[in-house]
């Protein structure tokens, strides 16, 4: 699903955020990406969604070579990727329903289809009764769940999350992780960047560890507890 081939990312000014990173995440796999802040987690996610392009090496998403993907095709790549942000990135002048419906409207779905899918996605994250509320009236955990509903409403084959539990207490964080595992169970590939070791050490998934822009470990989350 995601393949990195000796990928480096150097920013103008010379700072190298990633150097020589290679890994392969299979379709249907769930993996965590961890490392200290500045280790290159965000840069790696940005390369996958083509928010930035790699300086060297090649990135493949769903079999597509991203370095050859023209700018005008980027939107179609992004429709295959559901992205969950730490800051939720919701539109505060629209209702929960309209926020979740946005990816479907962008993709040009029919009105009746939009309604059905949005309700299904909201049902999934347990917010079906809040569809007419505005995001500002929701709690942090609820806002994050709206963000997740929006990321999955289009049924993308790949789900990316950047610190999705960053601002949430442990109980809410576990709940959110549970949601990601549920999506993974129905075949969605999931990659979650997080520094919350406590949380991921309780789960059994693949774990990629970045340090100083290099991939220093590629193992299981269960090994984390042992090594810590």
């Amino acid at each position: 699903m995601i393949q990195f081939d000796n990928v480096s990312k150097r920013y103008p000014g010379g700072h190298e955020a990633l150097s020589g990173v290679s890994f392969h995440i299979q379709p249907g796999e769930m993996a965590f990406l961890t490392g200290h802040s500045g280790a290159g987690k965000s840069s790696l996610l940005k390369l996958i969604a083509l928010i930035e392009r790699s300086s060297r090496g090649q990135v493949f998403v769903d079999g597509q070579n991203l370095s050859r993907l023209k700018n005008r095709h980027i939107p179609h790549l992004r429709r295959k990727i559901g992205i969950v942000f730490q800051s939720h990135n919701l539109l505060f002048d629209r209702t929960v329903f309209d926020n979740v419906a946005l990816p479907l409207i962008i993709a040009g779905y029919h009105q009746s289809e939009v309604g059905r899918r949005v309700r299904a996605a909201l049902d999934k994250v347990g917010l079906l009764n809040r569809d007419k509320a505005y995001p500002i009236t929701l709690s942090g955990g609820e806002q994050q769940r709206v963000g997740i509903a929006r990321a999955v409403v289009n049924r993308p084959p790949l789900l990316l999350a950047d610190e999705p539990t960053g601002n949430l207490d442990p109980a809410l964080s576990r709940e959110i992780m549970g949601l990601f595992e549920e999506f993974n169970r129905v075949g969605v590939s999931v990659l979650i960047a997080t520094h919350d070791h406590d949380l991921i050490s309780r789960l059994d998934h693949r774990l990629l560890t970045l340090s100083g822009g290099r991939l220093v470990r590629d193992g299981r989350t269960t090994e984390l507890a042992a090594s810590a």
Partner: peptide
């Protein structure tokens, strides 16, 4: 996209087949 053999899906995924048929 190639997906692995699907395990039983929750009901949210169920309308997909119908949706694809009426999309064009």
């Amino acid at each position: 996209m190639k997906r692995p053999a699907r395990k039983p899906r929750p009901r949210a995924a169920e309308p997909e087949a119908r949706a694809k048929a009426q999309k064009p």
